[in-house]
Design a binder for these strands. Sequence first.
RNA 1: CGCGGGGUAGAGCAGUGGCAGCUCGUCGGGCUCAUAACCCGGAGGUCCCAGGUUCGAAUCCUGGCCCCGCUACCA
Length: 591
Amino acid sequence: MAEYILVAVAWPYASAKIHTGNVTGSHLPGDICARYHRLKGDHVLMVSGSDSHGTPITVVADKEGRHPREVFEHFHQGFLELFQRLGISYDLFTHTDTENHHRVAQDFFLALLHKGYLYTQVEKQMYSETQRRFLPDRYVEGTCPVCGYEAARGDQCDRCNTLLDPTDLINPRSKIDGSTPVLRETEHFYLDLPKLARAGLTEWLQTGKEHWRPNVINFARQYVGEGLQGRPITRDLDWGIPVPVAGWEGKCLYVWFEAVIGYFSASIEWAHNHNRPEAWKDWWYNPSAKTLYFIGKDNIPFHTVIWPAELLGVERLYDDDPEHKLNLPYDVPANEFMNLEGQKISGSRNWAVWMDEALDRYDPDPLRYYLTAAMPETRDTDWLWEEFVRRNNDELVATWGNLVHRALTFAYRHFDGRVPTPGTLEDVDTSLLSRIEGGFEPIGDLIAGCKFRAALSEVMALAREANRYLETKSPWFQIKEDRQAAATSIYVALRAIDSLKILFAPFLPFTSEKLHRYLGYEGTLFGKPYTATFEEPGGRVHEALCYDNSPATGEWTPSQLPPGQPLQWPEPLFTKLDESIIEEEKARLGR
RNA sequence: CGCGGGGUAGAGCAGUGGCAGCUCGUCGGGCUCAUAACCCGGAGGUCCCAGGUUCGAAUCCUGGCCCCGCUACCA
């Protein structure tokens, strides 16, 4: 029975390039999950987009003297290209500066307002009289009241690490022009989280979370258990989504409030783009649909508490059926962080492996393989170039790649370039096949449960089994005495490889696709990514990454490799890497 | 300070009450179809420390030490 699976991936700020940590944290696990469910025949909708609002973008824009729109469009374009090269198969990767997202976010806001989950409150904020605008915390610096450091930021002192409020700073000054900001009162909307907690959020967190990662659910329960406070959801900004209330001109929705709504608005955009304007409801109102959110651990409160609270509060949107309620997250498999050579990733210090640059030098599947094998599922991990080379050479090249190569070239040379016809299978043959075919269910369950490292390591263990099988049968001896026996061995090996191709496919889509062709199949396992430009009624134009699943023929089932099928001469699936790249790559860091 | 996660062989990790496991590395052997690759065998651990519960603890309890993170408009 086909399920509806919504794969929701955290929206990257379009103010910096994407690095290995971003990929292993959210985009890659989301893609593995999506590809697996597509092979299973489920209805997958994988969405995300560039977060085009928020301070980081205005910071970059101010520094470069450009409009925030120019900044985010530049990075957004880069993301679209990157995800295609890396095989991150978004059904829709859009952004938040669309007519559609603005409208949906505003409707979300109004629905919460009408249901009584918003209230207003006056607070004091730093205001620049020279610039005639309110300053975000990070735009204010001054002397730290604790250690006396003169360049402390409004939110934290970089020397003594004390957490600060901009009002704590001695001699505060604007980072933009050095002028002295003043405190000024301003009114904002607040999300009434205590009320939403009583309305069902607390209860929802208490039941049916056995499949959640312990750190995620524990954190969420702790967060709510401490007693929630209302949080402001508007800001004095000119770059963002305007507050849709008369008299509130010049104020925008706070980025954390509206960005999460992107999962919902992107689903609607996807349906609209495909001329099935109601289709998004299959994932949002169907109670058996599963929605999975792939995020980094810093995002846990937003996805386990605040976003569910927004969904609960709104209850339903663009739908009149009183039975319909927006689906709350089925799972939030948040990852920890991936460090780099023992140190925290830092874009500003260039202590990062930028994904586009890595793809200039290495194939996507080895990168995906290492990023999966070292995925920070339960604890922080490290990207180590030495490990990347080792796993590529010892695991991809030596174990899986070589298994494929030795079996395919042998078949090609000795059996006329075709899949040989087997004789009667003996125990040793059927036991290998049942071992591998028996892997589909448990490995599928591991992927569905977001245990990607364990799943990948199980598949690799099966590839080792197949290597052992070849050693046991030694078709290179059999061929001299008993051609039929060799034919059986090679057939069994090829059939095992054909199954392994599918088991590896969610992780290594490019090489599985290649192998699919070498084994003589027509068609492709997966669909095709493409970019498209969309023009909205209001005249806005945006470019998005899309995915056409219609050509996909891959299925999550054991091989039925037909004897006699013509093979293609195989090129090696993976290339051995020279140890010298370890030092070369490390030398690029921190410069 | 508070809270969350973690500490298991040289490295990276599984393992929630019943003989401590996996991959890599290392040592020795085999084989040669294959990208000098693959296969077999060996060595290597006080499961962070100290107490406790139990017939039995890596696993449960108590206390401590150490690492990472969250409480930031920084994945």
